[in-house]
Amino acid sequence: MTSVKSLLAKPWIWSFIGALLVWLATIAFTGGYGAGGMVTAALSLAVFTVIVGVGQMFVITLGPGNVDLSLPANIGLASAVAMKVMDGNDSMIAVGLLAALACGAAIGAANYLLIWALRIPPIIATLSASFIIQSIDISYGRGLQIKPPPGFADFANWQILGIPVLAILTVLFTIGAAIALQRMIYGRSVLAIGQNIRAAWLAGVNVGRIRFLTYTLSGALGGIDGALLAGYFRGANVDIGNEYLLASIAVVVIGGTSVAGGKANVPGVWGAALFLVLLLTMLNTFGVSAGVRLLLTGLIIVGVITAAGGQKAPR
């Protein structure tokens, strides 16, 4: 009984409960048909939201005003870079992945450079950067043969016993991220900065370096996500990352991370990503129109944040 209670006290459990309820509602509607397939599909799609969600989570945890709006443009450009470097050639997969990672990390580093040098709010810095990245992508991606090598596409879609391999790898990655958050100097420093940046500085945290690392990390995760997306969907295009701006922020918030900063939650990102993907599946199964789907998604985000409430500033 006490274990159930302590489980319910975890902020991330609610997103998993939500995902479960949505899944149950959907299979009740279909009469149990396609229950397993739905989980497989949800896991495959949730992976991409989780990867960028974790990056966004570290950024948001840095405190109010910190957010990475350049993720969609970043994903788009990195997917094009990866596909161009791989050039349909299986032997170039690793190099292509590295290129996407480097491209994303460079974008993240450039974001922080703007924030630091111009002392502008991250929201405007990453926004201006995303305008520029978008243009680079449009002009660079034009006329490219933008198909992944067959080996890479197969890898991105590979399943073992109905479980996508990418999902397993991503679970391992998120476990690493959770450990980094709670047990490494980097994670502790991010949490300290998010609670009180001045106090963190005065307690000896290297604020500039930690913020730089965090934006770079978010960028790098966006880059790798772009490459994987292009592999999974067997092709890159400029708009491939568009839905991940809202999705990355939404999974962080629904997952129980505080928008006020200083309190982060890695498992919640998984729960929220599964919840959002299953919600879309459910609405599609129910056959509602695109308009209703958007409307309900929006209302649920507003509803969740209202229920979670904002943090009152402690006196």
Partner: peptide, 15 residues
């Protein structure tokens, strides 16, 4: 509710 306006209006953009 002392909510972050960024998230609320993000949700409203879907609505």
């Amino acid at each position: 509710r002392n909510l972050p306006s960024i998230v609320v209006t993000l949700g409203m953009s879907f609505v």
